[in-house]
Design a protein around this nucleic acid. Structure first.
Lengths: 109, 109
DNA sequence: CTCCCATATTGCAATATTACGATAAATTTA
DNA sequence: TAAATTTATCGTAATATTGCAATATGGGAG
């Protein structure tokens, strides 16, 4: 075990869970916020910004990139990362729907 | 390692990450939706609903409960679970703020 | 009190995640 | 070409997560 069996759940539930998994580490939340704050682009400023070694940052960036939450393009020696707006719009809709589904339930106990 | 070091991140980032961690499994997303759909209350209907054994469901419920996302109260022999609306309101605000922070960044690359 | 039912806890095995040092790959500069 | 810089990948250790069988716990029913 230790492996999540995704085959029995709806595509939507799996997608929401995968998105949340990508945000389920404070370093990745901080990376996203930093990328957004600096605005256009960055590179290994993140390594200076966060208390993690360069390979660890690279690993977190890969997870975010694999879900499409950020994009990276080669910019000379370094790499430019930025928020992938379209993908975020999609997940925001998913999340709004989740909140809509859950909130009307209200408090029974 | 394998342990996330939360001490170097902001309380907000840690809180968001902890919330996402709770939703980072499709079974827990499905449990929340089921609890909300059935509305008032449930018990081990979840065990019949999902392809997981009773101890596994109980474990997922504990994770959701420990973050305050659901409440449980004894109802005779069984236990009544429901959505904790106040807590969800709080996280919805957190999430809306996150989306607001990230989206204006737009696409640079 | 005893049995039964629903839920929780424990213990364990398999796998995933986190983190980093060492190193590779790619590109710019000298 | 060679050295320097930036990022990615590999290998590995420590810890966390997932899942279940077995068992414990806490109430109601008889």
């Amino acid at each position: 075990m230790g492996a999540t069996n995704t085959t029995h759940y709806s595509d939507l539930d799996n997608k929401l869970a995968a998105f949340c998994k990508a945000l389920a580490h404070p370093a990745r939340v901080a990376i996203l916020k930093h990328v957004a704050k600096v605005g256009s682009c960055i590179c290994n400023e993140i390594v200076d910004e966060l208390p993690l070694a360069q390979p660890t940052i690279s690993q977190h960036l890969r997870e975010l990139k694999s879900l499409g939450l950020i994009k990276g393009s080669v910019e000379g020696v370094s790499i430019c990362y930025c928020i992938n707006k379209e993908v975020w719009d999609e997940y925001q809709t998913l999340f709004n729907n989740l909140f809509s589904d859950l909130k009307p339930a209200g408090n029974c106990c």
